[in-house]
């Protein structure tokens, strides 16, 4: 298990160098969106319309932060369960999205799409939301403000901590980590 620093936007080479269990520290802009924002993006694709953001080389963080106290860019900002975004993820990966950050297992289709389109799935520590928020330097709503906590955001992060769960070769830390300690 290695430690790697990642700066967005990401290239194929950046993500191909990662292995499951690696700790990464992410710096740069990341997209933030969850259930409703994903549904709207997919509805736009279905209608043949352009997306409000460019996904190429991007990372998307599955999260709906709590409201910011005055003077802070964001409230608490931990990951939500990624499995709910499984039906949407492969289409976004096909458009050049290089990675997703969340928590919990992904479907076989998402893991396959990570292999096919050279992308990774990372986990942030679920429930460590106040700690994670320390790495958020700025946050702005870029689309769907009416969705409140589910709006699509762009966050500037510095050394945002995450762990590689699914790499570009189809490996899964949740499967391998568990097998190692199963009695």
């Amino acid at each position: 298990m290695a430690e790697a620093k990642l700066t967005t936007p990401l290239t194929d080479k950046d993500v191909e160098s990662l292995n499951i269990g690696d700790k990464v520290l992410i710096t740069g802009s990341i997209l933030v969106g969850r259930d409703s924002a994903h549904k709207r993006l997919i509805d736009l694709l279905d209608a043949g319309k352009p997306l409000p953001v460019d996904l190429k080389g991007q990372l998307i963080y599955y999260a709906g932060p709590s409201p910011a106290r005055p003077g802070n860019p964001v409230g608490s900002a931990g990951p939500t369960t990624s499995g709910r975004m499984d039906p949407y993820a492969p289409r976004l990966l096909a458009l050049g999205l290089k990675g997703m950050i969340g928590k919990g297992s992904r479907s076989a289709e998402v893991i396959e799409a990570c292999k096919k389109h050279k992308a990774v799935y990372l986990a942030a520590v679920g429930g460590a939301a106040a700690l994670i928020a320390k790495s958020v330097k700025n946050a702005e709503v870029v689309a769907y403000p009416e969705l409140g906590p589910e709006a699509l955001r762009l966050m500037e992060v510095e050394d945002f901590p995450a762990v590689v769960i699914n790499d570009t070769r189809g490996n899964d830390l949740y499967v391998e980590g568990r097998a190692k300690y199963q009695k």
């Binding site: 679920g126 429930g127 939301a129 106040a130």
Partner: peptide, 16 residues
């Protein structure tokens, strides 16, 4: 550490 930051900074432990 998260619990300590929450208590001191008056942030929710989890965004949910």
């Amino acid at each position: 550490e998260n619990a300590r930051i929450s208590q001191e900074g008056q942030f929710p432990l989890c965004q949910d």
